[in-house]
């Protein structure tokens, strides 16, 4: 045991305090339209559709080439070629919907419901040419299934395409704070 003590690893980078963040972001607006209010209404409506188990309407919020993505870990920057908890285009979302609505989806027989709260909505990017936006928000979801409640919380990043009929999702990224812990049972529907 005559060895030298191993040095403790030390943080190499000095951490400096960051610059102050503007308390109030610039109001997002395009041609006089209140974009902040529009995207909030879109996110709230999406949550209502999900809690109402209106699976078809939910898929309809996505663009034809849209993806719902929950990465396996927060560092991931793409779902292509990487493990994901969900990485679903509209076709795979349709498989999920059809399973959920099949009379023999056995795990659907106990009483099951969710309640989503969406908040901290920030418009991060806005394309002045076409009105497309990237929106960050936070969510909290409570699920009740067979006498048991579960809670999931985290962030959403929505890439929204502006079209005549309103926004459509080209990519929804979901990162759950408790997404990497062991799952007590599984996730049957989108969060």
């Amino acid at each position: 045991m005559a060895k030298k003590r191993a040095k403790r690893p030390v943080a190499k980078k000095k951490i400096k305090p960051g610059k102050a963040v503007a308390a109030t972001p610039k109001p997002a607006s395009a041609n006089g339209v209140d974009v902040q209010r529009e995207v909030e209404q879109f996110l709230f409506r999406q949550a209502e559709i999900l809690d109402g188990r209106r699976w078809g309407d939910y898929i309809g919020l996505f663009a034809e080439n849209g993806f719902y993505w929950m990465p396996a870990s927060p560092e991931q920057t793409t779902g292509e070629g990487m493990p994901s908890i969900f990485y679903e285009d509209r076709d795979l979302m349709t498989v999920r919907m059809k399973r959920l609505t099949h009379p023999h989806a056995w795990s659907q027989s106990p009483l099951w419901g969710t309640s989503h709260l969406v908040s901290n909505v920030t418009v991060e990017k806005q394309d002045p040419r076409n009105g497309d936006v990237v929106v960050r928000s936070r969510f909290h979801m409570m699920e009740f299934r067979r006498e048991t409640s579960r809670h999931f919380a985290g962030s959403y990043v929505h890439h929204l395409q502006r079209s005549a009929g309103g926004y459509r999702i080209t990519l929804q990224r979901v990162d759950m704070v408790n997404g990497q812990g062991p799952y007590d049972y599984v996730l049957q529907a989108w969060v």
Partner: peptide
């Protein structure tokens, strides 16, 4: 791995119920 074995599995949801 993603479709059958992830925590959002389309398959094991019904196994675990059984």
């Amino acid at each position: 791995y993603n479709l059958v074995n992830s925590p959002a599995t389309l398959i094991n949801a019904d196994d675990l119920e059984n």
